[in-house]
Computed example of a mutant assay.
Amino acid sequence: MADSSFDIVSKVDHQEADNALNQARKEIEQRYDFKGTGASISWSGEQIVIVANSEERVNAVLDVFQSKLIKRGISLKSLESGEPVASGKEYRLTSSLKDGISSENAKKIGKIIRDEGPKGVKSQIQGDELRVQSKSRDDLQAVIALLKSSDLDIDLQFINYR
Rank of each mutant, 00 (worst) to 15 (best):
H14W: 07
E104H: 05
G38Q: 07
V61N: 06
Q133R: 11
D99S: 13
L130F: 13
D13C: 04
G38H: 09
Q23S: 12
I125G: 04
I109N: 00
R72A: 12
K107R: 11
R137D: 08
D151T: 10
R25D: 03
R31W: 01
R114H: 13
T94I: 06
K107M: 04
L69I: 04
I159N: 10
E56S: 15
D99Q: 15
K111D: 12
S44R: 13
G45I: 01
M1W: 07
L152N: 09
I50Q: 05
I154W: 00
L130A: 14
S75I: 03
N53A: 05
I50C: 07
S81D: 09
E55C: 11
V58A: 08
Q141D: 06
R92L: 11
K35A: 05
G45V: 02
I70G: 03
D138L: 13
L147T: 10
L140G: 13
K111I: 02
K89R: 14
S150P: 00
V9I: 13
S44Y: 07
E80K: 14
K122P: 09
K11A: 03
S136K: 13
D139R: 02
K11T: 05
K148W: 02
D3A: 08
K119H: 02
I28L: 13
N19S: 15
L79R: 12
I109K: 00
R57F: 14
G127H: 04
S10P: 11
Q66T: 08
Q133G: 00
S123E: 13
V61S: 06
F158E: 02
E27V: 07
I159Y: 01
V61M: 04
D7C: 10
Q23N: 13
T37L: 09
V12Y: 07
K98V: 10
I101S: 07
D139M: 00
D33F: 10
S67I: 00
K26T: 09
K35C: 01
L130I: 15
I41Y: 07
T37M: 04
V61Q: 05
I8S: 02
A17I: 02
D3Y: 10
D128M: 03
F158G: 02
N105K: 11
S42I: 08
K98C: 01
N53D: 14
S134M: 00
I101V: 08
V58Y: 09
Q124L: 09
K119C: 00
V85K: 11
R31G: 05
R72N: 10
K35G: 00
Q30W: 01
Y91L: 06
D3V: 05
E56A: 15
R72C: 01
I50Y: 06
P118R: 12
M1I: 09
L76H: 11
G82E: 04
